[in-house]
Amino acid sequence: MQKRIAIIGGGIVGATAAYYLSQLPGGQNVKVTLFDDGVGQATSAAAGIISPWLSKRRNQQWYRLAKAGADLYPELIHDAKLGTDVYQQTGTIVTRSDDSDLEALFALAQERRQDAATMGDVSALSATEVQAKVPLLTTSHPGVFISGGARVDGAALVAGLLKQATSQNLTIRRERVTLDNQGNVVTSVGLKQFDRVIVAAGAWVKELLAPLGVLADVRPQKGQLIELAVKDFESQERMPVVMPEGERDFIPFGHGKLLVGATHDDEGKFDLKATPEVTADLLGSAQRLMSGLTAESVTATRVGTRAYTRDFAPFFGPVPEHEAILVASGLGSSGLTTGVQIGRLLAGSALYGGTPDWSDYEKPLTTYLATSAE
């Protein structure tokens, strides 16, 4: 008898979980249905930087999770047969204007490199050397270069993973669904029962879990970035991503496309309209790094809704007192880094059951989930 698994949310966690449910041993005995209405998804609006090693977050559980995600990417991209238009280890550069700050950053990189082979080579660069690696830049500070850092296109990654999964055991339903108080999925054609349900709907997790009497510590945050048409250097597809001090991230893609962003707007919440003032701010940041850009250089804007918890850490796993329901949320702006590892872990749990110990990666779920009676 086939095991039936539902996934609510087709972003980075849901898509990765669907992919692994189609690839893990036993996947041939599973029927997976993914529900997503495609509205507001943070992943599809995002262009991510996979370079967690220089983060100064004190949360070591988050760092181990992010490091595991970065380690997983090369294997995932290879196995899913995705190309460099989706993910590429171009390297990342983090700049600093103060010499002592730069030295401290370089020392941190060397320390982290000892147990993070995926980082690749680490080197300190002068401002001139930074510009030589990223010819688009006309202004720069010195920086630290990490050869293993990468860029990823969220929308292309999700599309590629779901395409692989649909060729195996996945059906995609483009609709918004809810849960009832028994954990059944309420669809446009009535209730649907599943053996396991993975709720990976980002900032919408709070309303999805409410019928179960579960209160989730999740809040929405609006994020916006811009695409710019720039000179198409021959080396642009391999240009490192730049994380410039005091400016927005600078993400070169091939064929004359540059992405800049993203912003963090707590007041915007679920608003998916591009804000002209934010577009101007993003363009201004790009102009301080690269001359010759004008408003006409902006070819598109992307807007999505991230999910955050009060301590900015993600949570994932079986919902207490509702073990058939797995949940993930709170990934914030590092979702493309941590989401692939979370999706893989949830897929294994949904397929094989058991009581996994993920304490290396997160606090207890009761930190973020409470019952209505509490």
Rank of each mutant, 00 (worst) to 15 (best):
I5N: 05
G14Q: 04
Y19A: 05
L21E: 08
L21H: 01
G27C: 02
K31I: 14
L34W: 00
F35R: 05
F35D: 04
V39R: 14
G40C: 00
A42L: 09
A42R: 05
T43L: 06
T43E: 09
I50K: 09
I50H: 07
W53E: 10
K56G: 12
R58W: 12
Y63C: 13
R64H: 13
L65P: 00
D71Q: 11
D71C: 08
P74W: 03
L76N: 01
L76K: 00
L76I: 02
A80M: 08
A80V: 07
L82V: 03
L82S: 01
G83I: 08
G83L: 08
G83A: 11
T84H: 13
Q88I: 13
D98H: 13
S100Y: 12
F106T: 09
A107W: 09
A109P: 04
E111V: 11
E111M: 10
R112K: 12
A116P: 01
A117H: 12
A117F: 11
M119T: 02
A124Q: 15
A132C: 08
A132W: 10
K133N: 09
L136F: 03
L136R: 03
L137C: 06
T139N: 15
F145S: 06
G149Q: 07
A155I: 08
A159W: 11
G160K: 04
T166Q: 14
T171V: 13
R174K: 13
T178F: 11
N181R: 13
V185F: 00
V186L: 12
V186D: 08
S188Y: 09
G190K: 04
Q193D: 14
V197R: 01
A201H: 00
E207W: 07
L209R: 00
L212P: 01
A216Q: 02
D217L: 04
V218Y: 00
P220I: 00
D232F: 05
F233V: 05
E234M: 12
R238N: 14
R238A: 14
P240Q: 07
F250D: 03
H255M: 14
L259W: 15
D265A: 07
D265C: 04
E277F: 09
E277Y: 08
V278F: 10
V278A: 14
L283C: 06
S297Y: 09
V298K: 09
T301P: 07
T301C: 12
T301Q: 12
V303Y: 05
Y308W: 11
F312Y: 15
P314E: 03
G330N: 00
G335C: 01
T337S: 04
L346C: 09
S349L: 15
A350H: 04
P364V: 02
A370T: 15
A373N: 14
A373W: 12
